[in-house]
């Protein structure tokens, strides 16, 4: 379980990116975080694993308070939080396998990792995950040889091999085409279900969010303005989050053509 209490971030420039956010995510729940750009979605996710240092407030992961941890304890806790990035953030010049195995770095000593001598159990797990996302044959390819969708699958494997209890997902589909976006979202949701993972997914595509998640949180200038089921998301709510606009086209129920690329 992940719990945020009064989480606040004020950047050095004086921008208030997060204003005392309270949020609780039970085990196994996938939550979509929507909001206009600059609303603080990315900051919120990064404050959880402290890639961005929160100014005040608390973050609790399964009862462990993260904001007060020292650097080595923080590294231990980071192992339990898998992160998936917008531009994939794979190490382009390393192979797919190295990228996946890099998710185990927190568990392996420096010299073993430097010499690429990961334990056999990690290697097997990496193969299993790559097989699960359909990229086993690409294991020895360099990451920069892959397409966008393939790279994001590798990114997912890297996050999952950490054996995390929560996934932090930052705009996973922003650099992908619509079809691949759906495939990736479906994969993330399925994997979370299989492993009973909680996840926060930052996403700007409202329709896509509605299609896949159980709960949607709307963020507007650093504060939560909506928290509810996808079905509750109507024009009023969208106007509250994004400002006035004609929303009739945006809100869609899960469409039917979706089934064909499920295979």
């Amino acid at each position: 379980m992940l719990r945020l209490e009064q989480l606040t971030k004020i950047y050095k420039t004086g921008d208030k990116a997060l204003k005392a956010v309270d949020l609780e995510i039970p085990k196994g729940q996938v939550l979509a975080l929507i909001g206009p750009s600059g609303a603080g979605k990315s900051t919120l996710i990064r404050c959880i694993n402290r890639l961005v240092e929160p100014s005040s407030g608390k973050v609790q992961l399964n009862g462990v308070e993260l904001t007060s941890l020292g650097s080595s304890a923080l590294r231990r806790e980071r192992r339990r939080m898998g992160m998936i990035f917008q531009e994939y953030a794979l190490v382009e010049r390393l192979t797919v396998m190295e990228n996946v195995l890099s998710g185990r770095l927190g568990y392996v000593g420096f010299f073993r990792s430097f010499l690429r001598k990961f334990p056999q159990s990690d290697v097997d797990e990496a193969f299993r995950l790559l097989d699960r996302v359909g990229l086993l044959a690409m294991a020895d390819k360099r990451a920069d040889e892959l397409s966008g969708g393939q790279r994001q699958r590798v990114g997912i494997c890297r996050a999952l091999i950490q054996n995390p209890s929560v996934l932090l997902v930052d705009e996973p589909t922003a650099s992908l085409d619509p079809k691949t976006s759906r495939q990736i979202m479906r994969l993330i949701v399925e994997l979370c279900e299989e492993r009973k993972l909680a996840a926060i997914v930052n996403i700007h595509d409202v329709a896509l969010a509605q299609m896949f998640v159980q709960r949607i949180v709307g963020l507007q200038s650093g504060a939560i303005v909506f928290d509810g089921a996808p079905a509750e998301l109507d024009e009023d709510v969208l106007t509250r989050i994004y400002g006035a606009e004609d929303w009739s086209e945006t809100i869609q129920k899960v469409d039917e053509d979706d089934e064909e690329d499920a295979a």
Partner: peptide, 8 residues
């Protein structure tokens, strides 16, 4: 592949 060592 399972059980096989992996080398760069």
């Amino acid at each position: 592949r399972l059980g096989q060592p992996w080398k760069k």
